[in-house]
């Protein structure tokens, strides 16, 4: 379970929060001009990054405020928390250990890690 440091309330258990998915997806400014593929990209397609991911969280059972979290999805390590509307801080996630860039934690594959 994650411990999330709400920028408004401080550190709380993850149970109080709801994840709102990938952050910084902007609603298209010209909806009538969009093609079906562009709509699909906006509505459905996601980065689903393994590694550093920027995402939105809501303190739904607390202050009910939205904020952004930068998290390493390979290790669940929270790297930064910043408010809605702010630019993501420059970050680098963990040093990759396997050829495709996985850290050894949780990869389920120790045989190809460089150690």
């Amino acid at each position: 379970m994650l411990l999330i440091n709400c920028p408004y309330c401080g550190e709380r258990e993850q149970e109080e929060f709801t994840c709102g998915g990938e952050a910084h997806i902007e609603r298209p400014k010209n909806p009538p001009d969009l093609s079906d593929d562009q709509w699909a990209d906006y509505l459905f397609l996601r980065q689903n990054t393994k590694g550093l991911q920027y995402e939105r969280w809501n303190h739904s059972f607390g202050c009910r405020q939205w904020f952004n979290v930068a998290r390493n999805t390979a290790t669940d390590e929270i790297l930064a928390i910043y408010k809605i509307g702010e630019k993501p801080p420059p970050l680098e996630s963990n040093e990759p250990l396997t050829p495709s860039g996985e850290p050894h934690i949780g990869s389920g594959n120790f045989s190809t890690s460089k150690k």
């Binding site: 994650l2 993850q14 149970e15 994840c19 998915g21 999805t73």
Partner: peptide, 13 residues
């Protein structure tokens, strides 16, 4: 779990 993760572990809740 209600969030993306590749860590092969989830929340106790």
């Amino acid at each position: 779990d209600g969030y993306n993760s590749y860590s092969q572990r989830g929340g106790f809740n």
